[in-house]
Amino acid sequence: MLEVHGLQVCYGAIQAVRQVDLEVQQGELVTLLGANGAGKSTTLLSIAGALKSSGGRVCFEGEDITGISPEQIVRRGLVMVPETRDVFADLTVKENLRLGAYIRRHDLVGFRKDIEWIEELFPILINREEQAAGTLSGGEQQMLVIARALMSRPRLLLLDEPSLGLAPTIVEQIFRMIEKLRQSGLTILLVEQNASQALRSADRAYVLSLGTVAAAGRAEDIASSSDLRAIYLGA
């Protein structure tokens, strides 16, 4: 479904992603692990079109989407939730969700149906629809940005560190929600610092180190591999 070949991304003179090859099959939950600064977020942003790559190719559902604008990539069914969360702080929760459904903005019936589905998935958001998104707690904001991304009805969801800085009970809720989404048939590429939890839910894993793929394989194999610690320490 998603194929990334030899991806390279630079910030000015710094090459944050040197050589990344990865692949996600329809229906899979794949996790991308790695130490802080390994280039995980940069990789996802570049796949989603928010950062220009300086080399390599990204294919989604058989079509080359390298260098296409983020808004067009969303239209094709690939949506990303950045680690910075980026709720539209001045807008209400409902308005955030309306914009999440921007590419289907004329489908009001579908919108209402999706809102019900979102409320089932994130009961926390129910009573907050008229509240400004900036006033939500960190966990609620994380739920909102995931919900907002789902409103576009994507086929592939890129999640960047959804558990970052959240309380353990919230993290657990988020992982349960990811599990549910995956069972509903959504394909997910998940970036996590919380490696053990991510490996427990994922089918396959890639480990990034200094902008290159240092290890790849089935989640169980990666979990039991003794290199993992070393890679995390940057060796």
Binding site: S69, P70, E71, V74, R75, V79, D86, F88, Y102
Partner: peptide, 13 residues
């Protein structure tokens, strides 16, 4: 407030 994020939900720049 969030130009890039607006694009990432599908709003054309």
């Amino acid at each position: 407030s969030q130009f890039r994020m607006a694009r990432m939900v599908g709003v054309p720049a």
